[in-house]
Design a protein around this nucleic acid. Structure first.
Lengths: 258, 258
DNA sequence: CGTGCACCCTGCCCTAAGGTCAAGGTCAAC
DNA sequence: GTTGACCTTGACCTTAGGGCAGGGTGCACG
């Protein structure tokens, strides 16, 4: 003749799971009801009432940790707290919306995590006959550039576009790609470095713009990472780049060491 | 002469915390880089590249558990997966917006977790001179009714409004409130029950409407809980209600037992 | 040469709101 | 007597990392 509902009935009536009810007990949001002879919890209407109140707030997104105090506070305090919760919920929503927009751009605008303009450059590289591996390396450099030195990413792309307009420079770059398989001591590297340096000095637009004035050395380190990407896998290329940089420095161009 | 960035530098460049980088290592999203002589991780540009890719997706809301596969999949699979993530993100956003709307109603529309109309009834009860305790009990009953038998909540409120329009019934109800302090065997209870039953039978609109046809016994149990709320604290009231119910049953009204 | 400081290492426990599984007790029906 | 539905507690799992303890390393300053 136990009276009161079992936990399963109470949960079903209020529209939650048994586990949820027990969870509320453990957090002290709903007092433990009396037990019957078998140790089963028995719920009366007052218990259900409390459960309903807690559930109403929880469903509205109020953190469980705040519900206890909330239900014991006076009306104006109650409304103020709810406003506060609503504000936080709005922030969270806006954050998620921003994420979704980013996601949408990643899926539909940018291909391969890069903006259209950069993708176009990569496509042009492929059309000009550069190897897929070289194109992939450039894509990686662009990705790094965008993440590590976003402030100069646009001019980085612009410089790349500009360099593809110059057939001579394209030819020299292709030779540079061939250098991948050369020995680091190959004399042709020295020769190629001179040609590249001359070319770059002849058209200053091909040189990277200076980074912002503040955080000079930090920015240089980040930019260096981009410029020397993949060098560790190709010593000949590393030497080529080092030679070109040395020549540019000798010509008065300010290039920080890595 | 260790080359490569330390974890702190790498994390700062990519814009995450050290803990996050190590977390990605543990999940296998970013391979562990080589260690220097002191056992410190040393990051090269290829490691940073991977870190940037993972971070880009993570920031867009892609679950970390899916990023590994995502970065290894071909472009159309990649886009399809991102669409899927976007869909889930949208669901989550809509869910949160619904919660926020609920919250807003709780804070500004409903007072005390009840709709305006129900609050108006409670205000009227107070104006008619019912004790604060009785009004509180009615508020609790309304809360329970809304949560447990939402399908008849509106008619529940309507019945209450209607009953307050009848001065005689109001008087009888007030006597019922007085019965709170009576002994359960007080002869006045029998008398009051008769008067109440007569009154209710004279105006059928005062009787609760039948609940929906399906789930009859379940709905009856829930409705019973609402109607007998707080009875466990007032045996005289319990007896009064039982007598009234018996009389109504005797008159052919279908009232399920609790 | 010692000391302080900034940085790195691993490992453990913590979050919110429950879900899932295990092992065992209770109740009513067949 | 047994089956199935229900109840009990407890321990571990989820996300994406945060915080802390205890200890090692590298560099600058006195």
């Amino acid at each position: 003749m136990a009276d009161g509902l079992t936990i399963g009935q109470a949960a079903a009536f209020v529209g939650v799971t048994i586990k949820t009810v027990r969870h509320y007990h453990r957090l002290g949001l709903v007092a433990e009801p009396e037990r019957d002879g078998s140790g089963y919890r028995r719920y009366r209407s007052a218990d259900l009432l409390r459960l309903v109140q807690v559930r109403t707030l929880a469903e509205a997104g109020v953190p469980l940790a705040e519900i206890g105090d909330l239900l014991d506070s006076d009306p104006e305090e109650f409304a103020a707290s709810l406003d506060d919760v609503e504000r936080r919920l709005t922030e969270r929503i806006e954050d998620l919306i921003a994420r979704r927009d980013t996601l949408h751009r990643l899926a539909h605008g940018d291909r391969a995590l890069l903006p259209d303009r950069a993708c176009a450059v990569l496509d042009r590289l492929a059309e000009l006959g550069f190897s897929p591996d070289y194109v992939a390396a450039q894509r990686e450099a662009l990705l790094l550039a965008r993440a590590l030195v976003p402030e100069i990413f646009d001019s980085f792309v612009t410089r790349l576009e500009h360099s593809l307009d110059d057939p001579e420079l394209v030819e020299l770059t292709k030779r540079g790609v061939d250098a991948l398989s050369w020995d680091p001591d190959d004399p042709r590297i020295e020769e190629l470095a001179s040609a590249l340096a001359d070319k770059l000095l002849a058209d200053r637009a091909l040189l990277a713009p200076p980074t912002g004035s503040q955080n000079q050395s930090d920015a240089a380190a980040r930019y260096g990472l981009v410029n020397h990407h993949r060098e560790d896998q190709a010593p000949a290329i590393a030497r080529l780049n080092a030679l070109v940089e040395a020549k540019l420095r000798a010509a008065g161009i300010d290039i920080p060491h890595q």
